[in-house]
Design a protein around this nucleic acid. Structure first.
Lengths: 339, 339
DNA sequence: CTGTTAGCGCCTTCAA
DNA sequence: TTGAAGGCGCTAACAG
């Protein structure tokens, strides 16, 4: 029932030229007279001919395509990363296949397989978690892969991520600079490496400055950081414990959950306490302008794509060159009290 | 420099079987003894062999892949549609290529071309605008395409969308039912077909019920509906004109922009006026629980994928079967005053 | 400048 | 159950 597709052979027959000439006309290759090229292209147009990319890639052994796997396309953070990564790839003449692992290991592995089978030349992945390392190791033999989160040094998996220890310090110092004297870290999830760095650095920095600080720990977990932030902070408010005057949220998404809880319980930011997050997500929230610490998404993705392309090009990279931590910066908005 | 990829030929040689047997072992096809299959698969494992999907699709003339083109992956509305569409496709054994046209016609057309060249079996597209019709017409000769927004009947392009006229009526009636007696429509953008339906139906319904109503028109436009809503409503507030007691926003995203303006200018919802939107976007906004009118995203995507698969299957569909308007429903939350 | 030919990696008859 | 051979649609030498 399917319409048989028009092939280069049909065009050759209809135009009276050889398939080689048709190929040359289509690809703008040397070796064909302008007038004949024009004739051939007209025939193509007339038959609505579209070259078969599979066949072309098969013979050229090049797809000019990169794969990108993110945990959650619906989060503004990841979707922005996707966009920036796509842009960076396009700029360098690569196309991109977008995949949404939905934070599921199984799905992540399936996509890795799919991408490899589809002959992408390289893969950018924001791993679901620690467990992702195994799948990545499996496919890294076939194709260059760059992670967007830190990986163990022993795995040797290249990555480009933010220096989260540094980020934690910047956030904490900012709150202290703004005059906070009683700090709390909310939304901690031990499975997330970034959280561990941020929290550890938070405690260390506070200790150095002799400021009381603690990580609020709360067993519950949720699908999104937003929900976790909301729930944890609600728990805290209900508990009746003394309020801190400065809160470091595990991420911006978490911070937004905290904001939601505040709204319900009549707390005002930054009046009742200062709040700072991480990641600089660009959600257009009407409610609050969150101060945050992050690396430029664009810089991170450009760096990651560059690294990937170097690997594709076959450069032999040292561990130092292939494990990159970018320095985060403070993005000051309105969720912290004036100094 | 690139590692030469392991092919089926290598596996054949290493395992001592023919290419045909290896192929059978890999695909679970009949005609090979279990023990030999096992042996072959072990060799595959050992050499980290991954079949070349391009070659496979080329000979089978089937890719089991659908393409999806959306205008803005960063909008929660479209990204949710993408997710639902992917789910629907996966359920039916299809894979999916996600594309982000970024509301640019050029980019949209490039992706159409890319998808066709990559031999997707069908395409789901949320067109950038009226102008998209031309590109779609161009490629619909090659592959089945279903639009997620209404298209002109004469174009014959199949679509699955919400009945926006009905949506406009529901929203307006709800505000009136809640006691509003002075209505305004904010964020109108004439290029958007859905807006035209919503606004026309808004005016018609209000007229029928003898309620004063008008569409706030304001030349300015922006990249996102959010920004447009924010700007238009800010303009309105500055103008000092009399406040309506019920506002229909052109979309939920617009409504969120309105909310932002309200925050800046000290207006409270639903105290100062009731607000209703369209689309039921699932952004986790901490600030407001927006009442809205929409079709189920899941139903819409399931319907669209079904339609697409029928077309792929070669069914001959009537205009009635291929131009589907789904009935929207009221999703009541907290942005409208109690009756 | 043009056409012929040999594959790219794989699946699928068709014989054995 | 197995293997040889042809071909999917295209590009890239190589001849002419």
């Amino acid at each position: 029932m399917r319409k048989k597709q028009v092939t280069i052979k049909d065009i050759a027959r209809e135009s009276g030229f050889s398939i080689a000439s048709v190929s040359r006309a289509l690809n703008g290759t040397e070796g064909i007279s302008p007038e004949n090229r024009k004739k051939i292209l007209e025939v193509c147009e007339h038959f609505a001919y579209t070259p078969n990319g599979l066949a072309r890639s098969l013979v050229k052994r090049l797809t000019q395509t990169l794969g990108i796997i993110m945990p959650d396309i619906m989060s503004p953070f990841y979707s922005e990363l996707m966009v920036k990564a796509s842009d960076a790839a396009h700029k360098r003449g690569y196309r991109v296949l977008l995949c949404n692992s939905f934070r599921e290991l199984k799905s992540e592995e399936q996509y890795l397989k799919l991408l490899v089978e589809n002959q992408v030349e390289g893969i950018l992945i924001f791993p679901v978690g620690k467990m992702s390392e195994a799948s990545i190791m499996k496919y890294i033999r076939n194709v260059p892969i760059v992670s967007l989160n830190e990986m163990t040094e022993q795995s040797g998996i290249p990555y480009v991520c933010a220096d989260e220890e540094c980020a934690g310090r910047i956030a904490t110092e900012h709150l202290i600079f703004k005059g906070c004297r009683n700090l709390m870290f909310v939304g901690f999830k031990p499975e997330r490496l970034a959280h561990r760095y941020r929290a550890a650095s938070f405690l260390k920095t506070a200790r150095e400055k002799h400021i009381p600080a603690r990580v609020y720990e709360c067993g519950t977990d949720f699908r999104t950081s937003f929900e976790r932030g909301y729930d944890h902070f609600r728990q805290f408010l209900i508990s009746g414990e003394a309020m801190p005057d400065g809160i470091v949220a595990a991420s911006d998404d978490t911070a937004n959950g905290i904001v939601k809880a505040c709204k319900e319980y009549g707390k005002r930011i930054p009046k009742d306490f200062s709040l700072i997050g991480f990641d600089n997500i660009s959600a257009e929230l009407p409610y609050i302008e969150l101060t945050t610490v992050a690396v430029s998404h664009e810089v991170q993705m450009e760096t990651a794509v560059n690294l990937l392309l170097e690997m594709i090009g076959g450069s032999h990279l040292t561990g130092h060159q292939s494990r990159i931590k970018l320095e985060p910066k403070l993005v000051e908005r309105c969720s912290c009290k004036g100094a």
